[in-house]
Structure formats: structure tokens, C-alpha cells
């Protein structure tokens, strides 16, 4: 099986990585770059725990081949903290009580960040629709939806 050298930007850093052709973006992030904030929950594009931003849009990183990411720009949950400052969503999800076990949280935050980037003032229904691909078994979702709306208001 071939190994391909790709160039990409991850959380603002330029990277050169050799990846086997059957590796997913998720595997590359976790196993080559130790960016373990992105979680493996199903490897089938269903749970959303592995959601990252690929060229500005959220994707299930288990559903993208690493070799497809040559030249791409990737942002993971680790990239939401900039210059030591958390994203407003990270604070509002804490304040709302939207974190329990925390395993869905990184993917949830990426989906929410992508939503606010494209729709700075979403309704509760729009937030719910944007997060439908991020399964959470602990919180019951309501506080997470509230946290996204609070973040939207805080950013206005």
C-alpha cells in the first residue's frame, strides 16, 4: 500500500506528513500529529465526534481520506484556542452546563463554530439542525443549544 507525502495547514501550522492511502483524516490527526482532541466515535460518519473544519467547512474527519487533504486547511478543537484565548463558544458551553463526559464536546464545538461563521444569529431551530449530526448521550442537548445562542448574542 502506498504512502503519500502531503502538505497541509493544521491549526495555522504548516505540516508535511506521510500517510498511507487508507488512512482517514481522523487517523492522521490523532496518530501522526497527536491532535487527540478530535474523537473517534463510530468511524462511519454518524456520530460527529470527529468533526473538524476542512477548508472552512465542518466534515466528519473519519469520512475523509488523509491523502485528499493535500493543500488543505484543517482546524481542530485545539485550534479554537487562539493566543491563549478560548473561543466564546468554549466559555458559553461551560457556563451553560453543556459539558458532561466531554467526548462529544470537541465535535460539537466545531459544528457550532461553523454555524456561527455562516449564520451569526441562528434561531434555536437552526442551531438544532446544525448540530443534528453530533450525538451526545449525557446532556440532553438543551444546554448545548442554549450555549450556542448565548455565544451568538455575545458576539453581536
Amino acid at each position: 500500500m502506498s504512502v503519500t507525502r502531503i502538505n497541509l495547514t493544521v491549526n495555522g501550522s504548516k505540516e508535511v506528513v506521510d500517510v498511507p492511502s487508507n488512512w482517514t483524516l481522523l487517523q492522521m490527526l490523532r496518530e501522526k500529529m497527536a491532535l487527540t482532541g478530535t474523537k473517534n466515535g463510530c468511524a462511519a460518519g454518524e456520530c460527529g465526534a470527529c468533526t473538524v473544519m476542512l477548508n472552512g467547512e465542518p466534515v466528519n474527519s473519519c469520512m475523509v481520506l488523509a491523502v485528499e487533504c493535500d493543500g488543505a486547511e484543517v482546524v481542530t478543537v485545539e485550534g479554537l484556542v487562539q493566543d491563549g484565548q478560548m473561543d466564546v463558544l468554549q466559555q458559553t458551553i461551560i457556563d451553560a452546563g453543556g459539558v458532561q463526559c466531554g467526548f462529544c464536546t470537541p465535535g460539537m464545538l466545531i459544528s457550532a463554530r461553523a454555524l456561527l461563521d455562516r449564520n451569526p444569529n441562528p434561531s434555536a431551530d437552526e442551531v438544532r439542525a446544525a448540530l443534528v449530526g453530533n450525538l451526545c448521550r449525557c446532556t440532553g442537548y438543551i444546554r448545548i443549544v442554549e450555549a450556542v445562542q448565548t455565544a451568538a448574542q455575545a458576539s453581536q
Binding site: 482532541g37 479554537l80 466531554g102 464536546t105 464545538l109
Partner: peptide, 15 residues
């Protein structure tokens, strides 16, 4: 336990 959970720093077994 939440700051580490929202920043991706929290260590779970597979990490």
C-alpha cells in the same frame, strides 16, 4: 473538569 474538555486537552484512554 471542563476547561480541559472544551479545549481538547482532556485525556481519554485512546488519547
Amino acid at each position: 473538569d471542563v476547561r480541559e474538555k472544551v479545549t481538547g486537552a482532556a485525556v481519554y484512554t485512546d488519547d
